[in-house]
């Protein structure tokens, strides 16, 4: 399953690349992999958060629920999608649709691409921490197969909130990190200029995370068809498991991390 990234890059370059303006966003992935996609809105508590797009569609002939963090392509879109930084409503909408998927035993695909959960007064006061915590706890018990693919930025808790899944895959040029290298360098060395040192130390590239056993697969960039085939195969494999087996394996997947 392991594929070496096509060429070795400086880790910080990977981070900068993952933020690049011309990258494929969640919408592109949905457009090329999912047919008959229907987007659904709202968390049913407070509002609609366009940083997260979610809905249902077919992956081949498999009905699935798709939840993606969308950054947008041009300035207008980026503002509308809040640059891919979700408020609590976004995470609650995601959870609502995951629960719906569970009801119909429909697999869930999460496309992760965020610099982090939005930090602002409103987000805090509507329970950003609680929203993320709820997703982690509820996804641990969601009785349907789930795969998340980090397609660009995997920014800390905001990315993790959609990654408590049976499999975590990463595009070869994506990153997943506990903290942005700039903040890390700023906190530890009081200088954002050491971001490259921090990026290296944090071990945030797909290769590094694969080596540590924290992700299951590295996907080649630009190969949507290949990704879609792999997803189909993997979902079939997961669907063949009993619910008990699935949940126990998911528990063990995270249980052994760090020990």
């Amino acid at each position: 399953m392991f594929r070496q990234a096509s060429k070795p890059q400086d880790d910080y370059q990977v981070v900068l690349g993952a933020r690049g303006e011309n990258r494929s966003t969640a919408k592109d992935y949905i457009q090329s992999m999912i047919s008959d996609f229907m987007e659904f809105h709202g968390d049913r508590y407070y509002g609609e958060d366009e940083a997260i797009i979610a809905g249902i569609g077919f992956l081949g002939d498999l009905p699935i629920t798709v939840i993606g963090i969308e950054k947008g392509k041009d300035t207008n879109e980026r503002i509308r999608h809040n640059f891919g930084s979700a408020h609590p409503e976004g995470y609650r909408k995601a959870l609502r649709l995951m629960k719906q998927a569970e009801k119909f035993h429909r697999p869930v695909l999460c496309l992760v691409d965020t610099a982090g959960a939005y930090c602002g007064i409103d987000a805090e006061e509507r329970g950003q921490g609680r929203a993320i915590a709820d997703n982690l706890a509820e996804m641990a018990d969601l009785k349907t197969p789930m795969i998340s693919v980090v397609i660009g930025e995997g920014g800390s808790g905001g990315a993790l909130a959609l990654s408590h899944t049976d499999r975590i895959w990463m595009m070869e040029d994506a990153y997943f990190s506990v903290v942005s290298p700039e903040s890390c360098a700023n906190i530890l060395w009081k200088s954002t200029e050491k971001a490259d040192v921090a990026a290296k130390a944090l071990g945030l590239t797909a290769n590094r995370l694969y080596e540590m056993g924290l992700i299951e697969k590295i996907c080649r960039k630009g190969k949507m068809k290949e990704l879609s085939e792999n997803l189909k195969k993997e979902f079939r494999l997961l669907l063949a498991k009993s619910v008990e087996e699935l949940l126990e394996e998911r528990y063990q997947r995270f249980r052994k991390i760090g020990y």
Binding site: A140, D141, S156, G157, S177, L202, R250, Y251, I257, G258
Partner: peptide
């Protein structure tokens, strides 16, 4: 989360949360 442990520390959030859920 403790930055010096990178993703190993971030994923402790998932590890503890699922134990709380059980």
């Amino acid at each position: 989360a403790r930055m010096q442990e990178g993703m190993l520390s971030l994923m402790q959030m998932s590890k503890v949360s699922q134990a709380v859920k059980r």
